[in-house]
Design a binder for these strands. Structure first.
Lengths: 208, 208
DNA sequence: ATGAAACATGAATACTGATTCATGTTTCAT
DNA sequence: ATGAAACATGAATCAGTATTCATGTTTCAT
């Protein structure tokens, strides 16, 4: 929804080639979607261009009309995941005044997102090896936002005092581990149960 | 022929070939160490057998005397990492009666280990893609131990009540994220500072 | 209607790198 | 001392696959 006038921004992308017609647009999207499924399922190295293009229903050469290299699609997927996750969480916590409540809602939204997009999740993990830069950007951007939120809450007296950066990483770590338990280790628990337990830990700690 | 008793089981390892002399033992160790350094630095896919053997100072073919495939060395490294981490933490928390104190000491030991063995850390992460089985085993074994510890502490009234499994994953997630911040994101913070902040969060939560 | 730009094709290219193998060399129990 | 097993070599094999390219087809502004 958020209408960012024109696609000019792109910040620092190096597009192999942007499509100029509706037809091209559709093809590019098909390839991107196929890449997400195939790379998510088989991993970066076992996902060949051939696999991706055949999943997309186009010829192999078509791939290179829209992407300069295999790595480029991958990077784009990581970026997309970042945008999506941040957007999802922002939406889920919008308007929640209390930080602890926001923490809970955000965790819930994150876990639901992860369950809905297991492929994208794996792709981010693999970025550490395929595209460390994208991996960095993903987490640093996330951590920055987290830090600001915690700082504000601390100033407002909504949470106790403590180094926000370490806390941000610790909280991200909880979300990540629970997401992983869900999709990599196929936990049977409901997201609601997980969130309740985790929230209690985050809010009150382990002390009796 | 003369095929008899021999290599029956060894629990579940699938050794390409165990060395039978001191010379072979040394060569195998050299290859394993080289693999750790090279794979840790370049990642699994960019680390070729040629790189590994030349780092080890042996010929390429020698690799296959001791390992059936490239994947096999990798698996062995993950296993070794698991053993080492568990041992390190067990040692650091030995004799500590109170669970919260043990939690703190364990986290500190883990972070120190990670800082000392950044290569091994990356290797475990990559196992999710190269050898999902080893990855599973690594975390499930760890989680199991964690669960028992938390259950006992809960029964002893040392910590509050809560689903131990979710808690175990959350706590592992904290440790992992902080370790990652340390070595992947090159945080400047001292381990002591990090542990103090994280411990406060784990023990008391965020509530003011 | 039309031609230039955009899009699409898939076979050919070019290269990498894991694994094998035929051939030596070393070790060690006897 | 000796020969069989263990160890070592590195060139050759073999398969996969990212990327290019010469050749069509479609789109659309004029």
């Amino acid at each position: 929804m958020g209408k960012s006038a024109g696609q000019a921004e792109a910040h620092r992308q190096a597009p192999g080639n942007q499509p100029k017609t509706a037809r091209g647009e559709a093809t590019r999207k098909a390839i991107l979607g196929a890449a997400e499924r195939v790379i998510g399922a088989k991993g970066y190295n076992d996902a060949s261009i051939g696999h991706i293009t055949s999943e997309a229903g186009v010829a192999q050469g078509t791939f290179y009309i829209y992407f300069k290299t295999k790595e480029e699609v991958f990077s784009e997927l990581v970026l997309e995941m970042g945008r999506l996750v941040r957007h999802t969480i922002a939406e889920a916590t919008q308007g929640i005044e209390n930080r602890l409540d926001a923490e809970k809602a955000g965790l819930q939204a994150f876990l639901e997102f992860v369950r809905a997009h297991p492929d994208l999740y794996r792709i981010v993990q693999e970025a550490l090896f395929v595209d460390p830069n994208a991996y960095h950007e993903y987490y640093v951007t996330f951590a920055d936002g987290y830090c600001s939120g915690l700082s504000a809450a601390e100033k407002a007296g909504q949470i106790s005092k403590g180094d926000v950066e370490t806390r941000a990483w610790a909280l991200m770590g909880i979300a990540r581990a629970l997401g992983e338990q869900l999709i990599i280790f196929k936990s049977e628990k409901s997201i609601g149960e997980i969130v309740d337990t985790a929230y209690d830990l985050i809010a009150n700690g382990l002390k009796p």
